[in-house]
Design a protein around this nucleic acid. Sequence first.
DNA 1: GCTTGACCCTGTAGCGACTCAAAGGTTTTA
DNA 2: TAAAACCTTTGAGTCGCTACAGGGTCAAGC
Lengths: 154, 154
Amino acid sequence: MKISELARLARSNAETIRYYEREGLLSKASRSESNYRIYTAAHLERLIFIKHCRNLDMTLGEIRTLLRFKASPEENCGEVNRLLDEHIEHVVRRIGELQELERQLRDLRECCPDGRQAAACGILEGLSQPSLEKTPGNHVPGVHASFANNINKS
Amino acid sequence: MKISELARLARSNAETIRYYEREGLLSKASRSESNYRIYTAAHLERLIFIKHCRNLDMTLGEIRTLLRFKASPEENCGEVNRLLDEHIEHVVRRIGELQELERQLRDLRECCPDGRQAAACGILEGLSQPSLEKTPGNHVPGVHASFANNINKS
DNA sequence: GCTTGACCCTGTAGCGACTCAAAGGTTTTA
DNA sequence: TAAAACCTTTGAGTCGCTACAGGGTCAAGC
């Protein structure tokens, strides 16, 4: 099959597939006479695997590690377990941080009843206060951005 | 004061401060004879404001909006309230998504007791299965990345 | 046979919010 | 006086794509 059919079947898109090839997550497809990429069922399977991992918010690096283990079935899968445990830990920590964040945002929102002038806005005032220290986590991003991409095309 | 003292006081760092200047969040500092940026208490205050907003995971765009309202105190702050309400909504949605994600990851982790060979690894098998559809949110990123930066330097 | 439109290719630039490094100038300290 | 510590600008790198420019290929309809 050609790239757009692969994309359709995996609910991905052609540009992402080419990107994964460049990044070495998908093996290079063979080419037709006219230099079109030609894919097999094995490619589809692997792309679906990658997609599942991305849906679980794994990085491409983590996915690469998992793919290595898929490729060497004689090895012990303890590393796979470890990777997943770590990943779960990141998610749990991030949830905690976001809950704390929500609390702070709601506190802040309480400061300002509607209809005031900005000069008297309790929110702006609250944000000027030197409190609100962030307890550091790691490897876990902010509130904005990543899903928007996944959504439209999948 | 010079840039590194400003950075120290705001628990930020020099490169970020120059970046904020480029992005128009901080007004341009005056310069010493030797072309060093010289900052005032007003700059510090504004930088702390920005840092608080970033700690609340607001985007630079959202912060720019808030700064505009700080700068025009006669306006009604309804927009500030709206911005914050939206931001809270993003955070709440992201928490829900991550909780679902945690559930899926724990399910997956259950699939594989330690010490198996990768060939029999239930996790790798689970990730190959065609389930796990992602319910789309928007404007809210993955589990990895953003805090790591904030941490080291602040 | 020709055009139109849908597909494919490569290469490059852009997103957000920084971070880092190079290559140089200045100031402080020993 | 020399080294260390600071400052400057510029440009590139991070992550996981997405989008575009500028071209080639292919099938259908006239």
